[in-house]
Amino acid sequence: MKFPPTRYLRPVVLDQALDALNQYKGSIKVLAGGQSLLPLMAMRLADPDILLDINDLAELQEIRDWENCVEIGALIRHQRLIDDPVIQQHAPVLPLVARHIGHLAIRHRGTIGGSLVHCDPAAELPLAVQALDGEMLVQSVGQTRILPAGKFFLSYLMSAVEPHEMLTAIRIPKLMAHTRFAFDEVAGRTGDFALVSALAIVTLDDDASIQVARLAIGGVSEVPFRVYEAEQYLTDAKLTPEVIDGAASIVHQAVNPEGDLHASANYRRHLAGVLTSRVLTRVGVKGDLSWNR
């Protein structure tokens, strides 16, 4: 399982990287944490002529606290998402889900940009970004595109990033006040890709009825699945057991998963309902805002 022959570039500033992508597009692949790309290369399922190692790009390693959003450099590693105080304060959903990614060594190496571009529908960060309506900054020579999550995740293992482009940053809207959220997943083992995952983010009125609801399910479709129908159903409702059951039942109907070795379509569908009801129940109780204290 040795990597296939490749050539190597390690730019120190973003412009060099974008130039290289432009010059070698189609035969060059961005290497960030490498935790998805390198296993594929080891199995010779990926065979890039050139690896563009972006780990030295300081521009991609910043976390910026804007007025309405947090802008996270694409090279920010999962462990930093967990540990960073700005993210903990304004985008606490990310540390919550990031704790479920792989294992310690994977979290220390893997990056948010890498995970999003890899676009695995069972992965935690794409699910969170989908639920949070994050925006992706995608750059190429002389151009920046800003793509909302809905236009970024195209299909199974396929994002909207073109061969000459690079995802450079992710903007996550800050959570509104009185927002609660909860995440849960069922995986074969701790650290494995989830069979199904669910993330609920709910903003409440003063009278505890739901002002805004976001509900996303992972592992049940080609991209992380926003269940808008259930979100609508929840809006203006209160999180009573009946409402939660109703939402779970909508999710159960709405998802159309495929089966594989580890989970049949029916089991996945069942789990989508179960996890929906679990995350909504938890949100109804208090949510996971205090997870890290």
């Binding site: 390198l38 296993p39 780990n55 060594a105």
Partner: peptide, 27 residues
């Protein structure tokens, strides 16, 4: 395993654990 699952090859890079099978020497 050379695909990042078993952890036997874990080393510390700048003090944090990484899979040395899923890192390039050049990196």
């Amino acid at each position: 395993c050379e695909h990042g699952v078993c952890g036997a090859c874990t080393v510390l890079m700048d003090g944090v654990p990484v899979r040395s099978c899923l890192s390039l020497a050049v990196s």
